[in-house]
Amino acid sequence: MKEYNFFLGCIAPNRYPGIEASAVKTSRKFDIELRDFKGASCCPAPGAFGSMDVNAWLALGARNICLSEKEGKDIALICNGCYKSLFEANHRLKADPAMREKVNSILANIDYEFQGSVEVRHLIDILYNDVGPEKVKESVEVPLTGLNVAIHYGCHLLKPKFDRTFGSSERPRFFDELVEALGATSIDYKEKMMCCGAGGGVRSYKMDLALDIANEKLYNMTQAGADVIVDVCPFCHLQLDRGQVEIKEKFGDVYNLPVLHYNQLLGMAQGMNPEELGLDAHEISVEPLLAKIL
């Protein structure tokens, strides 16, 4: 039984609780316990908040890490944005003594000190590298045969490659393998590796332009015959799910393409029902997807 402090971020717990619940439930099947992480806050949002002050961003991220250090637990999370904030804060402060000193001098104001004693892992990394696609396949009760999945890796999971562990960001395969382990087909589509458009504070700053990027992705996914979009980031999830509603309002384009976080798809394949995975709370109805699977 491996225990992690489950870092939630903002969008998953406060807009898409199904992502939170499905992560906890599906991880239990692999003997991974995602425990309550008391007192955590916004990671803080790397693009929006970090744009204002990188030191404050590192300090707030380090505050979250310190909370977990006090309990001696590694952190697991399910959001690319939170991954950037916490993985990078952890990595940089461990490697750079000058930066650590600077951030610790800010943290001293609240009597915290970053030790560098825990790890920060994205759940998709844990599933691929610790659990492995074979074991994931073994846990499948409802193979998703014939399901065309448009995978959206997102950005902060893979980039910048020098500060991540996944290698080149041009043609990664690990997320595809995890989807294929469920019996589904990962389809190729134009601009598969492109950003969803939400990050960097742009979704709040100039929503039209942010949505234009998402619109291009949605168009390409639809052209390639996608049945569902699968992501590993609640912010991308919001942009692509709620974003379809906003795109219909602003641009008139309609896709009706269901959007799932990987853990929700994993839960479906493991035989869980859509309500317990929070799929009914999505803006875009998952009915067409359920029709195909069930």
């Binding site: 790397p46 693009g47 970090g50 950005c155 980039k159 590796m193 990050g199 960097g200 332009l209």
Partner: peptide, 17 residues
């Protein structure tokens, strides 16, 4: 300046790192 979504594609490809 505020339109950058921080996708880091430019940073990954820059030949001057």
């Amino acid at each position: 300046l505020w339109l950058c979504t921080t996708c880091y594609t430019c940073s990954d490809r820059c030949p001057r790192r």
